[in-house]
């Protein structure tokens, strides 16, 4: 099977909303020696994107999207085991990451966390629907040098700006870099709210984090 065919297999498996199909496709991709990052971004995430398009067109519905999301999460979990843990090595830097309050979309955010982790960062993933103050509290607690925030809806995007304002108010803005992401976020938005960087996908997020922190 060519790499492209394997990516298609992975993507189709997510669209089928079946966990077994996704797990089988991931195993197959692994056995072909494809990098976990590529399996996720070019295969699984591209399938999730198709699911989103089909959802918008009334071909798939909320339960399907939830099942596809669950299947994709299981696929990513399977890959996490293979990603370099770097447990012994010294961590490059500490990053707090989470999905802002009011937003339960966490697939993309979790991929970003996983990729940052496997690139050698110490990541504290706060999960989804995170109360904004929790980002700040975690930064204080861990002494993190970067905070990442995901928002997948136009209605929750302003949460990213609020955290930046709160960081300022609590005298922490100069101590941490802020990275924002999620489908509705853009470079223009990041500039507007005074974030330090924006990344469109997980590998870009790793690149940006390295640029800013190392």
């Amino acid at each position: 099977m060519s790499k492209e065919e394997t990516f298609k297999l992975l993507s189709d498996a997510v669209v089928s909303c079946k966990k077994d199909a996704v797990l089988a496709a991931v195993e197959k991709a692994k056995s072909e020696g494809i990098e976990p990052a590529e399996i996720i971004e070019k295969g699984l995430a591209s399938g999730m994107n198709s699911v989103g398009i089909m959802f918008e067109r009334g071909k798939l519905f909320l339960p399907h999207v939830m099942m596809a999301a669950g299947a994709m999460e299981a696929g990513v979990k399977l890959l996490e085991a293979d990603m370099p843990k770097d447990a012994a090595k010294k961590k490059l830097a500490v990053i707090v990451n989470g999905t802002v309050e009011g937003d339960v979309h966490d697939i993309g955010k979790s991929i970003v966390s996983t990729m940052l982790q496997s690139s050698g960062f110490e990541v504290h993933d706060l999960g989804r629907d995170v109360p904004l103050q929790d980002f700040i509290d975690k930064v204080k607690e861990t002494g993190a040098s970067m905070v990442g925030m995901s928002a997948l809806m136009t209605t929750t995007l302003p949460g990213q700006r609020e955290v930046i304002e709160m960081l300022k108010e609590q005298g922490l803005r100069d101590k941490v870099k802020v990275m924002v992401g999620g489908a509705p976020a853009t470079q223009t938005w990041a500039d507007k709210i005074g974030a330090d960087c924006y990344a469109e996908n997980a590998s870009e997020a790793v690149a940006r984090a390295k640029e800013l922190l190392l």
Partner: peptide, 19 residues
């Protein structure tokens, strides 16, 4: 106009109703 799939997998006479 569109049969919304709140369940998503219910079928009648072999046809899935959602969509």
């Amino acid at each position: 106009e569109l049969m919304l799939g709140l369940h998503g997998e219910m079928a009648y006479d072999g046809t899935v109703l959602a969509g």
